[in-house]
């Protein structure tokens, strides 16, 4: 027998979840979204009188794996000061023991929703380049995102692009953390690798903890990540995700580009996606900057490294790049001949 409707149960659950922000400088405004680890709320920072987003863990206790992961995410973000990465303002524990961190409140749309309003391929590619810029910055600081997908990218009202949700981020270099802190206390994540790697067993690579199942998003997750091959995960895993994200920006789907499904995607762009998402990591772009460079070269009307052009393709590209001048010179020639004919009639 059922005494309460599902809706009523949801309301009760939401009511029970409402965090008590007493003792913090924040005043709760509204719930924004639920994630894997907890809930994101908007709140007002009463000291600075600004809106912030609070990511609050579901379960109390600073020592749980989830709490460590949330704290680690906050620390990773705090060290990645970049216009394309959402900044963290504060971290703390609520009266009920739940860990939270406060970050910039980003007003905008998720990339998968925003992209519907962007019809031009060059504009979509420019957005992609800004994502690459943020991810490349993180890689340069020894951090892998490991869950890049359209839902984890926000586009603000002024076109600012922010890479969100660094909850699965992996720290590759110990230097990323201050001395005295544990090295990447929560890295991955794979069911098949539940036994922790012995301390010092893998120099400079994160420990594996007892967390959950394979993390990442199908379609955007590299094969080595899906296999749980933690030793093989490096910057090229994020490059795979970026390739899938690029494909999504071009076709609306992360999967392979078929000529029939997307006839208007040029071969060079399809080749960039294919190179970035090759199953063998060694055949992908070695660094995000190189992927971004190829996309930039496409935007500038230059040949891309991922695709060897035929003579016809080279000619078409040359014509597109210099179309105005070619047409201008042709017009000049026509006028010149007309003048010649007119003068000697």
């Amino acid at each position: 027998m059922k005494f309460l409707s599902d809706r009523a149960l949801d309301r009760l659950r939401d009511g029970a979840e409402i965090p008590d922000l007493a003792g913090t400088p924040y005043r709760l405004l509204e719930r924004v979204a639920r994630g894997g680890m907890g809930v994101v709320y908007t709140a007002e920072d009463e000291k600075l009188q600004r809106r912030v987003a609070l990511k609050i863990l579901d379960v109390p206790g600073r020592e749980s794996d989830l709490a460590k992961r949330l704290l680690r995410e906050a620390r990773v973000l705090a060290r990645l000061e970049h216009p394309g990465i959402v900044p963290v303002h504060d971290v703390g524990t609520l009266a009920d023991g739940r860990v939270f961190y406060a970050m910039k409140f980003v007003e905008g749309l998720r990339l998968d929703r925003y992209i519907a309003s962007v019809n031009s391929i060059p504009d979509r590619l420019r957005l992609f380049l800004r994502i690459c810029d943020a991810v490349g910055f993180a890689h340069a600081h020894g951090v892998l995102h490991r869950d890049l997908k359209p839902a984890n990218v926000m586009v603000g009202p002024f076109g600012e692009v922010l890479v969100m949700d660094w909850g699965l981020a992996k720290i590759l270099r110990e230097g990323m953390l201050r001395s005295g802190q544990e090295v990447d206390p929560e890295a991955t994540i794979f069911e098949s690798l539940k036994s922790p790697v012995a301390a010092g067993g893998v120099t400079g690579i994160s420990e594996v903890t007892e967390h959950g199942t394979v993390m990442g998003t199908p379609g955007y997750m590299s094969p080595e990540q899906a296999r749980g091959d933690v030793q093989q995960i490096d910057a090229r895993s994020d490059i795979f995700s970026l390739g899938a994200l690029l494909r999504f920006l071009l076709t609306g789907k992360p999967g392979q580009i078929s000529a029939a499904a997307s006839p208007r995607i040029e071969k060079s762009l399809a080749a960039i996606c294919a190179k970035a998402t090759t199953a063998a990591a060694a055949e992908r772009y070695p660094a995000v900057q190189e992927l971004a460079l190829d996309v930039s070269r496409y935007l500038d009307g230059l040949a891309v490294a991922a695709h060897r052009e035929s003579i016809i393709e080279k000619t078409v590209r040359f014509y597109r790049r210099y179309r105005f001048f070619i047409l201008l010179i042709a017009a000049y020639l026509v006028m010149r001949v007309l003048i010649l004919l007119f003068m000697h009639r």
């Binding site: 001048f325 010179i329 000049y332 020639l333 010149r336 001949v337 010649l340 004919l341 000697h344």
Partner: peptide, 17 residues
Amino acid sequence: ALGGTLGLLDGLTGFFE
């Protein structure tokens, strides 16, 4: 670049005369 190209084409139209 443009002046040189157009000048060259201008000269080449001399073949019509």
